[in-house]
């Protein structure tokens, strides 16, 4: 009998200990200082907005040179590491060799039959063989990556941009398996040794999180166009897909466009004029 009561005492004590442990956490969660309650959060006045952001890439206007410039400016401003960059041994001693299969890219060139594998034709128009096709995140309307993410670290903004919360990502890489466009990269290692010049206006990433194109959300917030658009010499246009008067809709009206692997129902927001 003695044994039994000691046992139940321990059980009760254990439950009580859990309760005690939880109380500071609860206090923290409910702490709302009076100062923050009165504050107002809002958007920058000059911010560019849309109901659903979309992109049109005019493949006729993209040359090898422009494509390279676009990739470079995007990767530079977003602190995307370049594994070919020679590591500063003084600043980052003992950096191990990079595995190029673990590279990170936001926007890059692909040949037509890789960018559009389902449109591979036996007798393809000659010019498509060597045209550089720029591929990036499609900011899909029905994004499989958003659906897959178990923490909502990848989510869809009201304006259609599929964006990542690097603070929340647990690095499970489910989104990478889900993305049918290979648009996502994982930080297999700390990227900093491989960033030639860090742009202070954009964070770098920590190891263990996934990243991808954010449609330059930070630029749009400042009222500026995405870097790729600025560098494209008119080949890339972004705008509101839901506004019939927008530049982008006019382009779509006037040209025949294709999207990557449309048959999957993801509704990509990136269109290609071919």
């Amino acid at each position: 009998m003695m044994k039994k009561s000691r046992r139940s005492f321990l059980k009760v004590a254990g439950i009580a200990a859990i309760g005690l442990g939880a109380s500071p956490a609860m206090n923290f969660a409910s702490s709302d200082s009076p100062g923050t309650a009165l504050a107002v959060k809002g958007k920058n006045e000059q911010a560019l907005t849309a109901h659903r952001w979309g992109m049109v890439i005019d493949t006729n206007k993209i040359t090898e040179e422009i494509a390279e410039k676009i990739t470079e400016v995007c990767h530079k401003t977003h602190n995307v590491p370049d594994f070919k960059h020679e590591v500063d041994a003084e600043k980052y001693p003992k950096t191990r060799l990079a595995n190029h299969k673990q590279e990170i890219k936001w926007i890059w060139e692909e040949e037509f039959h890789y960018a559009f594998p389902e449109k591979e034709d036996e007798y393809l128009t000659e010019k498509f063989h060597d045209l550089p096709f720029l591929v990036t995140c499609n900011h899909c309307k029905n994004a499989p990556c958003v659906q897959a993410c178990p923490t909502q670290a990848t989510f869809k903004r009201e304006d259609g941009i599929v964006i990542m919360d690097f603070h929340r990502c647990i690095g499970c890489r489910f989104c990478m398996a889900a993305c049918p466009y290979g648009s996502r990269s994982f930080n297999f290692r700390d990227p900093r040794p491989f960033i030639a010049e860090t742009n202070p206006d954009f964070p770098t990433r920590s190891k263990g999180v996934v990243e991808k194109c954010n449609l330059c959300a930070e630029q749009l917030a400042k009222g500026e166009l995405p870097h790729c658009v600025q560098a494209s010499e008119g080949a890339i246009v972004v705008g509101d897909l839901e506004d019939p008067e927008s530049d982008i809709r006019v382009l779509l009206k006037e040209h025949y466009t294709i999207r990557r692997n449309q048959s999957l129902g993801t509704e990509p927001s990136v269109y290609y004029i071919v």
């Binding site: 595995n99 673990q102 590279e103 890489r173 990478m176 290979g182 990269s185 994982f186 297999f188 290692r189």
Partner: peptide
């Protein structure tokens, strides 16, 4: 040091 020590890659994640 991260998952760099594995054989996984961008394509085989």
């Amino acid at each position: 040091n991260g998952l760099m020590i594995t054989g996984m890659s961008r394509d085989v994640s």
